[in-house]
Structures are given as structure tokens and as C-alpha cells.
């Protein structure tokens, strides 16, 4: 049987600082064209704009 430490332990590091993101990279949402999904007679992408603004603002 192997060393029980292999069972209990992991090889990971908790980040003290967030990984650096490319500053100019658009949000995934911004890369999307019209969704084709209609919600309340409006395109889903349009409906989500204020949601993303709330998340990132």
C-alpha cells in the first residue's frame, strides 16, 4: 500500500493575487452575436446587457 499522504494531500497553490488577465480581452458575452433565443419578445443578448453591467460594474 502506498504512502497515505498521497491520499490526503494535493499539489495545488491557492493564489494570493488573481491571475493576470489580458486587459483588453472582451468578455465572453461581448464576443457573442445575437443569440437567436427570444425572451419576452427580445433577444436574450440584449436582455443580458444590464446583468453583465451589474456583475462587472
Amino acid at each position: 500500500m502506498t504512502d497515505p499522504d498521497d491520499f490526503w494531500s494535493g499539489d495545488f497553490t491557492l493564489r494570493r493575487e488573481p491571475a493576470e488577465q489580458a486587459g483588453a480581452e472582451p468578455l465572453p458575452f461581448e464576443r457573442l452575436a445575437a443569440s437567436g433565443v427570444t425572451v419576452g419578445d427580445r433577444d436574450l443578448a440584449q436582455l443580458l446587457v444590464p446583468v453583465y453591467r451589474a456583475l462587472t460594474g
Binding site: 491520499f7 497553490t13 491571475a19
Partner: peptide, 18 residues
Amino acid sequence: TAADHREARALAAGCPPV
């Protein structure tokens, strides 16, 4: 993003069996 992917892959690779 690509950076998130890298971070997630590293977490998965280092996941403790417990």
C-alpha cells in the same frame, strides 16, 4: 479565459484524492 483554463487545469491536476 485561457488564463482561467490554465488555473483550472492546475487545480484539477493537484486535486487531493480525499
